[in-house]
């Protein structure tokens, strides 16, 4: 795993200088964090390069960082013949949640990006049909953002703070 991560780090630093922010091994899973403007071309490189060959998009999902100021998109890609996995993370400001779509690389990204848009409001530029998928069309919030709590936080009858509420 560490070897693979070093290879990716070397290749990306020469091909796309400055776009790779950092790399880590998280529970034996190689993770790279890249700039959001470069995410598409890095994924395209990782997919089309013959030695890496991350041709299978396992998962695509969104994330809001702990400070609430940034949104992220997490890609899990997989090289099936060599059975190698990689997680690519990219973050951008919640004020301008825009990132290039990867539907041109993977057909399966279509609904996964729609789901991410539905719940986090990430705008995937160039997506063929970026509309809500699981929630009703009339909804005007992005429910998985942390600013929308699940329970009414102002309830007085349930202030059991010792249990973390």
């Amino acid at each position: 795993m560490r070897e693979l991560l070093n290879q990716i780090e070397n290749q990306l630093n020469t091909k796309f200088p400055g776009d790779l922010l950092f790399t880590e091994l998280s529970y034996d899973f190689p993770v790279i964090t890249v700039k959001s403007t470069a995410a598409h071309k890095i994924l395209q490189f990782l997919k089309e390069d013959e030695s890496f060959n991350f041709h299978f998009l396992t998962d695509l999902t969104g994330l809001q960082t702990e400070d609430g100021q940034n949104l992220g998109v997490i890609y899990h890609v997989h090289n099936l013949p060599k059975n190698r996995r990689l997680r690519v993370r990219t973050f951008f400001s919640i004020q301008k949640p825009e990132i290039e779509t990867v539907t041109d690389l993977w057909l399966g990204a279509n609904w996964m990006e729609r789901e991410t848009y539905d719940f986090f409001g990430v705008k995937f530029l160039g997506h063929p049909n970026l509309v809500r998928i699981l929630n009703v069309d009339e909804m005007d919030i992005f429910p998985l953002r942390k600013e929308y709590p699940l329970e009414d936080q102002e309830r007085q009858d349930k202030s059991d703070k010792q249990f973390g509420r």
């Binding site: 396992t58 994330l63 702990e66 057909l107 399966g108 279509n110 609904w111 789901e115």
Partner: peptide, 15 residues
Amino acid sequence: FRLHFRRPCFIYYQA
């Protein structure tokens, strides 16, 4: 903090 389910049905039903 965040839990995401990769649901195979959701992904292949788009085909």
